[in-house]
Write a protein that binds this DNA or RNA. Structure first.
Lengths: 196, 196
DNA sequence: ATTCGATTATACAGACCTGTATAGTGGTAT
DNA sequence: ATACCACTATACAGGTCTGTATAATCGAAT
């Protein structure tokens, strides 16, 4: 459960990253220019480029920053359920519910970023970062399922992941209300019927 | 199962829409300019604007067009499973599998478009179109579940929707292989255990 | 035959984009 | 005290964006 130190950043850089995080998430990456970010952060564009080098690098920093905050939030929720078992797997869904209420009415920043970049496999440095985050969560699901005594933890982790991703997307799409709760309830049913 | 006539479009407009569909989906909406679209379609920008009025309107047409093609594909798959039952619900996943193989390595165009527009509730005309498409599919799931004798078809439809959306996103993210197959297998297990 | 619709070709306006250049300020650490 | 660092302020280069204007061409329908 590595939760890395988030940022020995200069004050200006920190404000840039905070402003960029909010704007990128709210409006989309391509829709926000560096001038807008600098103005919102109360710094000049020079500071932005001195600290981050390019918009692309700032986007990567944004995704890393947001993921680090999410992992922190998740770690705190997991710490409250120390005993191995289904509840520990379900804590991920609970974390997503509380996180979503405060930080995410538009779904997952990684999923959204993916939508804005061309076919990943080429050079774009954002795709590997997103892939890394998703594999990390898949592995966490797998580990917690294994702890919980699930018969096939790898297979169960994929199912958990599908429910999690589907719910996050549905939060942003507003197809129906409380998708994360529906996902958690179904996840519980699956865990309890296949690892009692 | 309304499958509307797709397009009494002029030849130029048709080529614009085809080019826009491919480019928007492949590279993202904001990343593609109207000049690029016109050039790819082999028409002038004037034709594009004469036919569609604005880029925003073209984006809506793109989403409608792609959805219409998807519904056509889906209808063809459903026609092969006339008997009410689980297999008819699962036909949606089968349709998504074959569709994805030919048309969608980057996931769902509606989900991706959602990521590129600001908080839906405001004026943007793309959000209602996306919401409409998703509710349509949710209702279809509900109807087919009801036909299949599911105990609570509305609740089951939400679960199917979560699996479907999660799998589509995972196709684009490449978190693990064959997510739609995993989703279909789980969907089958759910349908058979709750509506035998 | 002539009008009308769809189209080509080209040019341009005005805004916004990323990124850089130049010059100067204020605090901090050695 | 001086070298360094983060930062401000301003201007601009070069490109791309959406959208419009003008003029001409071609085919089909009435």
């Amino acid at each position: 459960m590595d939760v890395p130190d988030l940022a020995p950043l200069t004050p200006g850089a920190r404000r840039v990253l905070d402003a960029a995080s909010e704007l990128f998430y709210e409006r989309g990456i391509h829709a926000v220019g560096v001038d807008t970010i600098a103005a919102a952060a109360g710094v000049t564009k020079k500071t932005l480029y001195d600290r981050f080098g390019s918009k692309e690098a700032l986007v990567v920093a944004y995704l890393q920053h947001r993921d680090a905050r999410w992992r922190e939030h998740l770690a705190a929720q997991l710490a409250r359920v120390p005993e191995p078992g289904s509840d520990r797997v379900l804590a991920i869904f609970d974390a997503a519910i509380s996180w979503s209420g405060e930080n995410g009415l538009k779904g997952c920043s990684a999923i959204n970023a993916r939508a804005e970049i061309g076919d990943g496999h080429d050079g774009h440095p954002v795709f590997p970062e997103i892939a890394r985050q998703k594999v990390w969560l898949l592995d966490l699901f797998g580990e917690l399922c294994r702890e919980a005594g699930t018969i096939d933890p790898r297979a169960m982790a994929k199912r958990m992941m599908l429910l999690h991703e589907g719910a996050l997307v549905t939060v942003g799409l507003e197809t129906f209300a409380h998708p994360l709760e529906v996902a958690r309830d179904l996840a519980r049913a699956l865990l309890e019927s296949l690892a009692p």
